[in-house]
Design a protein around this nucleic acid. Structure first.
Length: 802
RNA sequence: GCCGCUGUGGCGGAACUGGCAGACGCAAGGGACUUAAAAUCCCUCGGUAGAAAUAUCGUACGGGUUCGAUCCCCGUCAGCGGCACCA
């Protein structure tokens, strides 16, 4: 027999060239066709090159994109580069190369690696966040936010490395020390640009109902936004001022035995002359200001605080005077920065009360409040609470809130954990914030005609000693005139975070070269929303939330026509090292995709990554398992040797083929790639002796999205006509998916005794007869009374006997 | 502490809506081909007992519901990820 050798290297190169030259995967401009916009997170082109994790996500959506094209859709499956970022800048600083050059090199490497995988990206819509034509629109969006009052400046504590003398991003602080040099990181107060994402908090929760995201993403986003409902209540004080607190448990007001305000609370200054122990209070304020986030977390269990001597609070529900403390367990940034403490029903208050010997008054029955706080609000009954006695917690919350509202002392209130987005970076390699500071006019937006505001060329990209951006030293660039009044003015020297460019990139893909708008309205109306967005769970709370926020803003100002950017969001699991740990250089378990492509081929790598396990779950890499996928592809390829005439399915394989089309089609839609591949392997194992042209065509088409090169080559070699990418996705007939005869299990008292073949459409009576006729079953039924028969069509027959 | 996820052979993993546990692949063992190796092809492959037919146990652990539980309910343990004094 003539043996076909499959030379993956030559074949993959050949088809990659053909696809590129023919622009086979370029998105069409015929906006009357049904569209499919598939999106994967564009990578940060790091110096390390592609990771084996990247192809898992990219191949998964490549399979969907390729299937949709065969199904007649106009598909946009784009790729680009999220190229601003710290590693590039740090590399540039260390090696004295301009970050732009570093970026260019890294992008070139990433691109060639991706192309070697045969991913069907539309390279004509490639974008790069560092491209001035892209930066222009990132800056434009910022200006719109600024003009609508959604960007503002605020004094903020930032991470400051005492050795590097520079500001660090949170991700660069590991375990309280600088990731690079291991020195202490302290907090330094700086004025930062902020974006009011909190203004969109409720809509970001509510609109999750409109989108098809996997549940764990929705849950994480909701938790991150952290909505809670309660009441704000004014406590009067002996100082005369009302002190406003926030509580989610207004029902427990009769149990409040003291109050706590945050060390940063403004009333401390206000009350300074009334407070008798101001020295002690000041010392505590300073101590907590010095604590880093890390220390505060570490000491979370141990409660500290100081009583304010000279001012006391008055509980509005019973007129009782209670002491006020300052303690850093109350945060200025949440609620009102002040609380009423109910030790009987709050764990933190309980610990504090125990430590400071404060009274604990039970107001909800059900626990032992001297032993621990009773925080359950589903059970229990109100006690020691005057008008609330006998009510449930829920009833009490409603009643007391209403009473307080009537008295003008309280009001229903919703709070969110979500904070506004810190948008400034004191770095070089980011989009400059396009604002000018004028003594007279304040911060003024650059006219849109001056966008993009480009980064100046500089000698050194290092941050300054005092924590200013490297741009602050470029006086030529910094000094300008006010666009408003023409007076001398200074440019803002902070740059935007990496999240900026990735918050709207999916819009640019729709119309990547537009100079008049971030994308044309027609393109946006046609392509948006993204139909299917796949990415990592690690982006659930930052990128995904930020981009939804920007999109909603753009919707509000009429730039886009959909309130949500992504119709569907799925998430892939991580690929771990062979030892089951996260892949990392330091663990020495990194697999380089180039090596795998070189040794086994791109199709095999793609297939293996899809076969490795449940797409949504993490799975350990195992190089020795790859060869199973390679064998499978080679066996499919060499089916050419046993090809026989006939465009129809043979009688022997007809049912299998229809079932296979159904299975593969459905599994792809459900991202069950592993079982789709297994089903193809199963059918391959059934093929014996010969295969018709019709069968082979179908198998090649089903396999094409997974292994595009090999299937193209086989299609061509067999002379099936045209390119496989121009064909149509196979369709099945439901009626032909059913076997004529099925094997069912026969049980007696739920124990399997035999398996019998019965016609698929047989009635219960017929099946019972056939089953009872089996010798092993007959033996078990002999002399017994059948009290019940359970028949599950196509599955089993169960006789219950006595 | 809180939230989420996971637990099935030597390994990765299958199992529709509660209906034959272990599909598919890897590894391993045996055989064929070969001077030999690689490649390829065929057979076996959860535990125990048995020559075998078969019996019996078995989906982290303990209970429960059911004719029947990997799947549903209650409880426990272990691992992973995220958040972390959010009143």
């Amino acid at each position: 027999m003539f043996e076909l050798k499959y030379d993956f290297k030559a074949v993959e190169k050949k088809w990659q060239q053909k696809w590129e030259e023919g622009k086979v995967f370029k998105a069409g401009t015929d906006y009357t066709k049904p569209k499919f916009y598939a999106l994967v997170e564009f990578p940060y082109p790091s110096g390390q090159g592609l990771h084996v994790g990247h192809p898992r996500s990219y191949t998964a959506l490549d399979i969907l994109a390729r299937k949709r094209r065969l199904q007649g859709y106009n598909v946009l499956y784009p790729m680009g580069w999220d190229a601003f970022g710290l590693p590039t800048e740090n590399f540039a600083i260390k090696n004295h190369i301009h970050p732009e050059i570093v970026t260019k090199q890294n992008v070139a490497r990433f691109k060639s690696q991706l192309q070697a995988l045969g991913l069907s990206f539309d390279w004509d819509s490639e974008i790069n966040t560092t491209d001035p034509n892209y930066v222009k629109w990132t800056q434009w969006i910022f200006l719109q936010l600024f003009k609508k009052g959604l960007a503002y400046k605020k004094e903020m504590a930032v991470n400051w490395c005492t050795s590097c003398k520079c500001v660090l991003a949170n991700e660069e602080v590991v375990g309280g020390v600088c990731e690079r040099c291991g020195s202490e990181v302290i907090r330094k107060v700086k004025s930062q640009w902020m974006l009011k994402i909190t203004e969109y908090a409720q809509r970001l929760i509510d609109d999750l109902d409109q989108v098809d995201y996997i549940d764990r993403v929705k849950v994480s986003q909701k938790n991150w936004i952290g909505r809670s409902t309660g009441a704000e209540v004014d406590f009067s004080t002996t100082a005369g001022d009302d002190l406003r607190i926030y509580t989610t448990r207004p029902d427990t007001m009769y149990g409040a035995t003291y109050m706590v305000i945050s060390p940063e609370h403004p009333y401390i200054e206000k009350w300074a002359d009334k407070l008798e122990n101001m020295d002690e209070i000041r010392a505590y304020q300073e101590a907590s200001a010095r604590k880093s986030d890390f220390e505060r977390t570490e000491m979370a269990k141990d409660k500290t605080g100081v009583e304010l001597k000279g001012v006391r609070g008055i509980n509005p529900v019973n007129g009782k005077e209670i002491p006020i403390f300052i303690s850093d367990y109350v945060l200025m940034s949440y609620g009102t920065g002040a609380i009423m403490a109910v030790p009987a029903h709050d764990t933190r208050d309980w610990e504090f009360a125990k430590k400071f010997g404060l009274p604990i008054i039970e107001v909800v029955k059900g626990g032992n409040v001297q032993e621990e706080a009773f925080t359950d609000c589903a059970t229990g009954e109100m006690v020691n609470s005057d008008i609330l006695n006998g009510l449930s917690v829920q009833e009490a919350i409603e009643k007391i809130t209403k009473v307080l509202e009537e008295q003008g002392k309280g009001t229903f209130k919703v709070n969110y954990k979500l904070r506004d987005w810190v948008f400034s970076r004191q770095r070089y390699w980011g989009e400059p914030i396009p604002l000018v500071y004028c003594e007279k006019c304040g911060y003024v937006a650059l006219p849109e005609s001056e966008l993009p505001l480009k980064l100046p060329n500089v000698e050194s990209y290092e941050p300054t000693d005092d924590g200013e951006s490297p741009l602050a030293n470029i006086t030529d660039w910094v000094n300008t005139t006010c666009p408003c009044c023409g007076a001398p003015a200074k440019r803002e020297t902070d740059t935007m975070p990496q999240w900026a460019g990735s918050s709207w990139y999916f819009l640019r893909y729709c119309d990547p070269c537009n100079n008049d708008a971030l994308a044309s309205k027609e393109a946006l109306d046609y392509w948006m929303p993204v139909d299917w967005y796949n990415g990592g769970m690690e982006h659930t709370t930052l990128h995904l939330l930020y981009s939804r926020f920007w999109h909603k803003f753009l919707y509000d100002i009429g730039v886009v026509s959909t309130p949500e950017p992504y119709a569907k969001r799925t998430s892939h699991g991580m690929i771990l090292g062979e030892n089951g740990e996260k892949m990392s250089k330091s663990r020495g378990n990194v697999v380089n995709p180039d090596d795998i492509v070189d040794e086994f081929g791109a199709d095999t790598l793609r297939l293996y990554e899809m076969f490795i396990g449940d797409f949504e779950k993490s799975a350990p890499w195992k190089t020795s398992s790859i060869k199973g996928c390679k064998r499978f592809l080679e066996r499919i390829f060499s089916l050419q040797d046993i090809l026989v005439d006939g465009e129809e399915f043979s009688a022997k394989l007809e049912t299998s083929m229809h079932k296979l089309i159904k299975k593969v089609s459905e599994d792809i839609e459900n991202m069950k790639y592993n079982t789709a591949i297994a089903a193809m392997m199963t059918v391959l194992n059934e093929i014996d002796g010969s295969i018709t042209r019709g069968e082979y065509k179908t198998i090649l088409l089903l396999l094409n999205p997974f292994a595009p090169h090999m299937t193209e080559e086989a299609w061509e070699l067999c002379g099936f006509g045209g390119a496989i990418t121009d064909q149509s996705w196979p369709v099945y007939e439901e009626a032909k998916c059913k076997e004529a005869v099925v094997e069912i299990a026969v049980q007696v008292n739920s124990k399997i005794k035999a398996r019998v073949n019965v016609p698929a459409d047989a009635s219960k009576e017929v099946v019972m007869e056939l089953a009872a006729a089996d010798p092993a079953v007959a033996e078990n039924l002999a002399g017994k009374t059948v009290v019940k028969e359970i028949y599950v069509p196509g599955k089993l027959m169960n006789f219950i006997v006595r």
